[in-house]
């Protein structure tokens, strides 16, 4: 597997009042061409920061990439110039954001906004860009695209706007599409449509997708591989089937158990919604030399408080960072 995008030992530090905190702590993962990889974790785990780091958009100050490398097809993006990065953004790597309601510029029509990206990166004329914008709106299944390009964002619904965002992101046929919780702000009925769309258009444009989410349901639906993050660290990685059926890290197990099931939930064995007790540690605790999940873990041991968990390679494709891995035979009650 030759990696298209390769993140190696990435550490991003934020300067806070309490000192320097690594919001991303020694993170490594590879993304193969055309693959869909999911970054999973609760809010504040560093998922969005990872996306911004790849885009070269870490807010600085207070953020700073302390070490590591991010290479796209062999080119280290962390050493690229700002001019080069501007050419990469939107063209080779593009991003879809969580809030479609506020991610479009309200004073320009959607056609102008798709066209602007095209003209910027592909050097198209206004006329060519317009034709291609219509094509893109058609590809994201917006009805009557030739009329819709003259609409302003406020004239469209949330789902429509997210389609426009996807059209903008994919217009230049990027190699990598980063989708940062693309369906969190949408109705459940629309979520599935957007996922279908991303899969279809992603396949057509041969874009690899990084899906950032906290919802294991979305992961099951979309992803091929999963990277589970907790407090800035990668704690488990593997193929989606392995992760969902045989999670080895207690946190992954907790995440999966948290997905509500309408009918099965109402049973004697599982009467309540599952939850992981506690919450993600504050930024000031990041970088702690033990396991950051220890305070919330039901399998915690003395060692967990003392040393950072080593990554155990379970199978060639699955690895987890835990001192007390779950037994592979124990299936999740999901």
């Amino acid at each position: 597997m030759t990696a298209l995008l390769s993140v190696k030992n990435l550490t991003v530090e934020f300067t806070t009042r309490d000192g320097i905190a690594p919001v991303i702590d020694d993170l490594s993962f590879d993304l193969a061409p055309g693959e869909t990889l999911s970054l999973v974790g609760e809010s504040g785990c560093g998922k969005s920061m990872t996306a911004l780091a790849i885009m070269g958009l870490i807010p600085s100050p207070p953020g700073r990439v302390a070490s590591g490398s991010i290479s796209l097809a062999g080119e280290n993006l962390l050493q690229a110039s700002e001019t080069r990065m501007r050419a990469v953004r939107g063209n080779e790597i593009s991003m879809v954001f969580q809030e479609p309601m506020t991610s479009l510029n309200p004073v320009f029509t959607v056609g102008e906004q798709i066209g602007e990206t095209l003209r910027r990166h592909q050097g198209l004329t206004r006329r060519q860009a317009k034709a291609l914008s219509i094509e893109m709106l058609d590809a994201v299944q917006i009805p009557l695209p030739a009329r819709r390009i003259n609409d302003y964002p406020h004239q469209l619904s949330g789902g429509m706007r997210q389609r426009v965002m996807i059209a903008i992101a994919l217009a230049c046929r990027p190699k990598v599409l980063i989708a940062d919780e693309p369906t969190t702000a949408l109705d459940v009925t629309v979520q599935a449509q957007i996922f279908d769309l991303m899969r279809a258009v992603g396949k057509e444009t041969e874009a690899a997708i990084i899906l950032i989410t906290h919802d294991m349901g979305s992961v099951a639906e979309m992803a091929e591989r999963v990277v589970v993050m907790y407090a800035g660290r990668k704690i488990e990685e593997g193929y989606v089937d392995d992760i969902l059926t045989r999670p080895r890290h207690p946190y992954t197990r907790g995440l999966i158990a948290c997905v509500p099931h309408l009918l099965e939930t109402v049973s004697a064995e599982r009467p309540y919604l599952q939850e992981i007790p506690g919450m993600v540690p504050p930024l000031s605790d990041f970088g702690f030399m033990g396991c950051l999940f220890a305070p919330r873990c039901d399998r915690v041991e003395t060692l967990c408080w003392q040393e950072k968990p080593k990554v155990t390679q379970i199978t060639p494709s699955q690895s987890a960072a835990c001192w007390n891995l779950q037994d592979a035979k124990v299936r999740v009650d999901a």
């Binding site: 885009m55 958009l57 501007r86 050419a87 990469v88 953004r89 939107g90 063209n91 593009s94 991003m95 954001f97 809030e99 506020t102 991610s103 479009l104 510029n105 309200p106 004073v107 320009f108 602007e116 990206t117 910027r120 990166h121 965002m165 903008i168 992101a169």
Partner: peptide
């Protein structure tokens, strides 16, 4: 968010000032 979105699609600072924020 739309400023971040514009930045992530490769807009330059001049572009952000005149096409995104000023209007």
């Amino acid at each position: 968010e739309y400023v971040t979105a514009a930045r992530s699609s490769g807009a330059s600072n001049t572009n952000l000032i005149f096409r995104v924020i000023l209007p």
